[in-house]
């Protein structure tokens, strides 16, 4: 039990060093653009249905939750604004990122882990190439770009989901649902949503490529890498969520004062 905390920080340090290596490679020896685009295309195509569905239902759930409270105060007109803002700022990015960690993260770490334990990564080095440049970088960049699109796409669909369930459960017509969204959702909400999507995409891409790249111990090792990827990504995202909310509040209060 005592070993857990030092081990966590040790791992964190390792991941940071790996991220440093990846960024250094990106700076000095970038990979071919078509490799990145291939990954973007592949990941987006593979995960769009999942994230779209997650987004739709997250929006829907928030609407149903808020509908009960809002109706009590006779403020049904604000339902759209409230639920959209809450989705964008908190649950939306987080839940969709969880979905992605189970899908993109697990897939990538399994793929890289298999390449590692079947000596393909070693073979790349022996044949005179750099595995970080050839294999890691395209996936790293591809995942960041496509996760960002998927996350924002999912958030868009959460509005649709919210409006749909608003019609079904609260009897609000869609125009009314949408009308008050801009009233409640200011730029800070949108900005916070975007910052979160970006940082979760970075977390996901870093952790899954790291876990895959440092897999050891055969098929079992690949299994371990996949599980660690999902768990570590989710935990880090929750911690990040707290961190960004905290920082966001702090910044907002500064702006309010200044």
């Amino acid at each position: 039990m005592i070993g857990v905390v030092p081990r966590f920080f040790y791992r964190l340090g390792q991941i940071m060093m790996f991220l440093g290596d990846v960024l250094k490679t990106l700076w000095h020896r970038p990979c071919r653009l078509e490799l990145v685009l291939e990954q973007v295309w592949y990941v987006t195509l593979q995960s769009f249905p999942t994230t779209a569905m997650a987004g739709f239902f997250v929006g829907g759930i928030m609407t149903v939750q808020f509908a009960m409270q809002v109706n009590e105060f006779g403020a049904a007109a604000y339902l759209g604004g409230l639920s959209t803002s809450a989705t964008f700022r908190e649950v939306g990015p987080m839940l969709i990122a969880f979905m992605l960690s189970g899908k993109v993260g697990a897939f990538t770490s399994a793929e890289l882990g298999t390449m590692k334990v079947t000596e393909q990564i070693d073979a790349i080095r022996c044949l005179g190439a750099d595995p970080i440049q050839e294999v890691i970088l395209p996936r790293f960049l591809g995942i960041i770009i496509s996760s960002f699109f998927l996350l924002t796409g999912g958030l868009m669909l959460s509005v649709v989901g919210g409006a749909t369930l608003g019609v079904l459960f609260a009897g609000i017509n869609p125009q009314e649902y949408v009308r008050h969204i801009p009233t409640i959702m200011g730029w800070p909400s949108i900005l916070s949503g975007i910052v979160k999507c970006l940082s979760y995409a970075l977390v996901l891409a870093t952790i899954c490529t790291y876990m895959g790249y440092f897999t050891t111990g055969g098929a079992k090792g690949v299994g371990r890498a996949v599980v660690s990827t999902s768990v570590l990504t989710m935990v880090t995202i929750v911690v990040f969520d707290w961190g960004t909310s905290f920082l966001g509040q702090l910044m907002l209060s500064w702006f309010a004062i200044g």
């Binding site: 079947t118 000596e119 393909q120 070693d122 073979a123 022996c126 044949l127 005179g128 750099d130």
Partner: peptide
């Protein structure tokens, strides 16, 4: 790692796994 490049050109290794891409 860079210095090893010339060594790896000189010494080829065939792995236990086929390790094809």
């Amino acid at each position: 790692e860079e210095q090893f490049l010339s060594i790896r050109k000189k010494c080829g290794m065939v792995f236990q796994h086929p390790a094809l891409f």
